[in-house]
Design a protein around this nucleic acid. Structure first.
Lengths: 367, 367
DNA sequence: CTGTTAGCGCGTTCAG
DNA sequence: CTGAACGCGCTAACAG
């Protein structure tokens, strides 16, 4: 029970092993680096034994210092609270594992200052590269990476003036996919709800694609659709409760104006009243909307308004909302692969890897 | 646009700075370590300038090598997919920040082999300590930490034969709190649903506390309650879909037997049929249950069975289920504080820090 | 106050 | 095949 917590007994060094094996450090080093061809099998056996006996483990820091590379890469995440981040992380970890890299995970928690500090810290630890899911698009703080600095690859969003590989969702296609789905389902009042997007390229792209898709529909109208569906963009600043309040109030006015929508599912008979749908730009927005609607219209809120979201959080199935799932795991995996290539010296111009989203239709948007 | 991605121009070293400032390395080192009292203001100014001009950043690896401490600690997480982990992580990060530590976050993704590898890796990077949210309770793989090895503090669960500080929820109190609440609300059929618990101490404690609370209620019966509530424990092995299927089927049989429970909310009139409640030992279990019930009984499943869960994931409010929220942030924070003390050489016997959970009552369990 | 001299643990020539 | 010697970037005595 009462094990004496004695001070760590100083780990064995390569010198200790050499002495124990009755040889020089060089041979040990060679053994560690797999240069077996340069060791007599007899010596090798002695080394093996010595290592086991001393429970020796090479000091990565020291090796890194010497050879100039420590197999460390930084993974800078804007917000771990977003399931998206965690999922991407899984891919990153798998890839690192496969490539012999060690990811230093840093969580900026939506604070620019944190991001700056972590980047500085990573630099200080001489990571060989960084994968960054930046907070914003115009960050001076990211100057030390990419371009002339340390290799970097961007995830999900671009950063102005920072030339680097980037991998993420094909936002344009995804937003189109979602919009078309809602249109096909006959919704004629569609609100695209998104966090402030001037600062985040992926949000910008989604918003633009939404508007474009709505416009295209309007242009093609008359061919098969009877009425032109109306599209709106609503900004929801999740960082500011007061603003959220105001935005939601605006939304409520529209919903109230539309009045009591007939119960959906009436033998396929299309409703006379406008059918309204909300298109959330990501999961946090979707959650905020769902919570609000539930509070306002009760458990039955989905009968009144449909909800579709980019991102497919675990509660989506429970709430029965339609989603566009991002290939998060692959995004993370590819990011590491790109970075690894850069670290190995690949010099091609900055690459973009846009992966497709997958529409998952649930009760919320189907009759 | 086409910035030439030139190879990293080799960072400046302390020697470069010394030359640039026309002085010796020692003075630079002193400057870096804040020993300002030992530097003439003139020299200090020159150093400052040189550092700025060269954009010098001290190499943490090299420092660590020399002084024997690198300010790195390991954070080993069993499952980042569990919101609990992410929340604890926030506390850990905040504390590290405050104490000048850098956490290396490692995600075992529920695989013992991963856990082993990461532990080995951390050791290899000479972290000064580790915070471990272990996969299981009887892991040989954790031998290198705690006791004679590197300082460690456990989070949420104990590990057999590993003497170390531990911080987590007061499981006994939390399970009692939940059970009493359900009893007070008049439920007479309560199922405690938990993942396989032989391997995880926190699950064990919760399950035992649940049974104890049910037994206590039975003993005290006759004083104020009319009927003795019945308690059951159901094991849900989320890692094995087939087993999950079987367990849920067992649950279904009970629910079906209880038959169509009268609609709750009938003017406070207690129902004649048994009222059944599910007590999920953690969020993943709760989600699994909720998904199943919804699939089986439709969107209105909560009218048929109540759900209470330890952990308070973001979707709990949306689903309207009652929860017991863990003080996750503080758990993480305290863990780092403990570890820091150990690193600084504190030698007291292993400490336990049990923090209380908070009951959050929602529609699911209130009439 | 300041510079010199040794290493920290390891990899790497370069001669045996 | 093997080992001695040097240096990575930095800190810590030890003198001036």
């Amino acid at each position: 029970m009462s094990t004496t917590p004695q001070a760590t007994p100083r780990r064995a060094t390569i010198t200790d092993v050499a002495r124990e094996a009755g040889t020089g450090k060089t041979s040990i080093s060679r053994y560690l680096n797999g240069e077996m061809s340069a060791l007599s099998s007899e010596l090798r056996a002695r080394i093996e034994a010595a290592i086991a006996r001393l429970d020796y483990q090479p000091n990565q820091m020291a090796r890194g210092l010497k050879r100039g590379r420590n197999r460390l890469i930084g993974m800078l995440l804007a917000d771990l609270t977003n399931p998206y981040s965690v999922e991407v992380l899984q891919g990153v970890e798998a890839a690192c594992h496969a490539l012999g890299l060690m990811p230093l995970i840093c969580h900026a928690a939506n604070e620019v200052e944190m991001e700056r500090r972590y980047l500085q810290l990573l630099t200080t630890y001489r990571v060989e590269g960084v994968i960054v899911n930046a907070l914003g698009v115009r960050e001076e703080t990211l100057r030390p990476v990419g371009g002339g600095g340390i290799p970097a690859v961007l995830v999900d969003r671009l950063v102005e003036g920072l030339v680097a590989d980037m991998v993420g969702l094909d936002n344009r296609a995804a937003a189109e996919l979602g919009t078309r789905h809602l249109l096909d389902q006959g919704f004629d009042e569609i609100w695209f709800v998104v966090q402030p997007f001037e600062q985040v390229s992926s949000r910008q792209l989604r918003e633009v694609a939404f508007r474009d898709a709505m416009r295209a529909q309007a242009a093609a109208h008359g061919t098969k659709r009877k009425a032109i569906a109306r599209g709106h963009t609503l900004v929801l600043n999740l960082a500011d409760p007061a603003e959220v309040e105001r935005s939601l109030a605006e939304l409520d006015r529209t919903l109230d104006a539309v009045g009591s929508v007939g119960v959906i599912g009436h033998a396929g008979e299309p409703n006379q009243a406008a059918r309204v749908a909300l298109f959330a730009a990501n999961a946090p927005v979707a959650l905020c909307l769902a919570l609000h609607l539930k509070a306002r219209y009760g458990a039955d809120w989905q009968a009144r308004v449909a909800l579709l979201s980019i991102d497919d959080p675990d509660w989506a199935e429970l709430a029965g909302i339609t989603t566009i799932r991002q290939p998060t795991y692959e995004i993370g995996y590819r990011a590491v692969e790109f970075l690894h290539e850069r670290i190995e010296g690949v010099q091609t111009t900055a690459r973009d890897c846009l992966l497709p989203g997958e529409l998952i239709v649930r009760a919320s948007t189907s009759r």
